[in-house]
Design a protein around this nucleic acid. Structure first.
Lengths: 351, 351
DNA sequence: CTGAAAGCGCTTACAG
DNA sequence: CTGAAAGCGCTTACAG
């Protein structure tokens, strides 16, 4: 441990001024004679002064006011159910401290709603914001307003390099695609083919999914598995009958398909098809550990699910905002969370 | 949020006594008239009083004094290098609070040294202890002394049900064996055999390893893969030449071995053999993400490594002790950490 | 058995 | 421009 922590009092003593003056210098508030200011600053630096966080928290009246802006979870977007849990966990831990957090959600399929909610966020004058930048251009606009108002913000689930974000915590999208490629390759017998399915109802997911597929495909040449044939299929409206038709069409043309890789979180829709049709010879590899997918993982139709730790993303995001605002700790700009490989045998640990 | 937190002052006001008296009742220290005591207790309960942790931390002079008792990491036991990192991380986070932690290590191969170190732990009069109960009987003795002295302790890396531990954070050993079984099965072609290798120089690991193998074997019948032949091999002194001889002997008798499963953390020793002999057709599945193993994972000789999050074990262990001692939070008795499935493509996230 | 007071390290008016 | 004082909620002697 360090010899002993310097206090305001110590600085005041050495500088021959009162603690009030020291405080004014340290917080750059109020008028202080240049000479005193310099003297105090120097001593503070010499003593390696840092404020006692506990005393500060005890004294400070005003609460830090955080806001999260995330998609509203629905049955169709079960993935987003985990995010509030991480927020809750962080807030529970921070319970003794003067912080509060307002959760605002928007409709994942509606840009206008998102825009409305961003105004709502701004209207509560937050000290910090956590958000998932689903709609690229609207998010950029929003982030720019935040920057203009000097409000720090952190991303989860993706980031926009063109904004002044404090930190991103989440998936390394490209690399997670590579992991998917490796696992898919592993469960596909020699000389068999792979079907890649993109389920995207709305455009904004495409960038995310494309990046994953890029990673997915990059795995094969680098590992000397160029021989595998890969077929692409896009489904925009994932209702039972359309899925059926679309897949049968592909399967009939490509009888050697042994594995289906789904780039998004709706593997269960494909698994459902495989199960009802009784096509036992086809494996599935997909994303995200939610109830609907997990059922098919346990029954063996889905072989691997890849997890991206949604609760940990929001948990860490909230903590970073707090640490930044109350302790002045600047986080790493980008923190990639581990890509989790989940099977029927270890899935219970992730629920 | 709750309406507003009750303070000692509020209780004192309602009870018509001074805050000193309230404090005495709350902390059960000093003599208080029965009547006053009951009155205060009731009011405190009614107001749902809980102390302001911040004020408490600010005021309290004495630091919480923690001790960790873990094996000294060596080249031969690289696994233990991660544990101090988790401790460090926890202590960094707790930096603003009045806590300190003393790390004491012992020789993993020496019961006597362990015993000496337990006395050392007791001699510093810790408020809480984190330990890895490597040597069963010596650990039980030690834990009993701790219990007698009313010192709470938490386990990592295994637990002894016969002791009064506060909490265990770590691997679900049996289940992690099952995961290993599943992965091994996955990389082993139809009708090929599996070699199970136990590397154990000293007895104490045997329980741990046996439990894993139990889990490993349990996977096969339940998933209808009873047909696979499994051969067992124990190596007590894992030097190059002995490994060579032992494995060749088994391989000659069992030419259909396609995968080797190593129950402990020394996969690299077997991988080294496979690599130098150029036996490309054999896969390896093993445990623990340390440098030596990771090299062979990346080069493709080891197909899967199973991780048990050693840093997270100690990180959470320390936090639980702190929360218990300073916030009176009683943790879950047993927290199994996820069994991580690690391949060459996602290993970088775990380093 | 109980109360009044000092103080943990900081912040916040207030008075000069 | 600067100092002295009050107070955040609690704990810790000390005096009665």
């Amino acid at each position: 441990m360090t010899p002993k922590k310097a206090r305001i009092k110590d600085i005041a003593l050495l500088a021959g001024v009162s603690i009030g003056t020291v405080d004014r210098v340290l917080h750059k508030r109020g008028e202080v004679a240049k000479k005193t200011r310099e003297k105090v600053t120097k001593i503070a630096r010499d003593l390696d002064y840092s404020p006692n966080f506990i005393a500060q928290a005890l004294k400070t009246r005003k609460k830090i006011n955080l806001v999260s802006l995330l998609p509203e979870p629905t049955d169709e977007s079960a993935f987003w159910k985990k995010h509030p849990q991480g927020i809750q966990k962080a807030m529970n831990e921070l319970d003794p401290f003067p912080v509060m957090l307002n959760q605002i959600t928007f409709d994942l399929t509606d840009e206008i709603d998102f825009q409305n909610k961003t105004s709502k966020v701004l209207s509560v004058h937050p000290d910090g914001v956590l958000l998932a930048p689903i709609f690229t251009s609207e998010s950029i606009t929003f982030c720019n307003s935040l920057t203009k108002k000097n409000i720090p913000f952190v991303f989860v689930d993706g980031y926009l390099r063109e904004t002044q974000f404090l930190s991103y915590t989440g998936e390394d999208i490209f690399q997670s695609g590579r992991v998917a490629g490796q696992l898919t390759d592993m469960v596909t017998p020699e000389k068999k083919d792979i079907l890649i399915i993109n389920i995207a109802r709305n455009l904004q997911n495409v960038h995310h999914l494309n990046k994953r597929i890029e990673g997915f495909l990059s795995f094969f040449p680098e590992s000397g598995r160029t021989c595998r044939k890969k077929i692409n299929l896009s489904i925009s409206d994932p209702v039972r009958e359309k899925i059926r038709k679309a897949i049968y069409k592909v399967l009939n043309k490509n009888p050697d398909i042994a594995t289906i890789f789904i780039s998004g979180s709706k593997s269960y829709k494909i698994a459902d098809f495989i199960a009802t049709e009784g096509i036992r010879s086809i494996n599935i590899v997909g994303y995200d550990i939610h109830e609907q997918n997990v059922g098919y993982l346990k029954s063996g139709i889905i072989k691997f699910l890849i997890g991206q730790r949604p609760e940990e993303q929001t948990y860490k995001g909230v903590k970073k905002l707090f640490d930044y605002l109350s302790l002045n700790k600047v986080p790493e700009k980008i923190e990639y969370l581990p890509v989790d490989v989940v099977t029927s045998e270890n899935v219970n640990f992730f629920l």
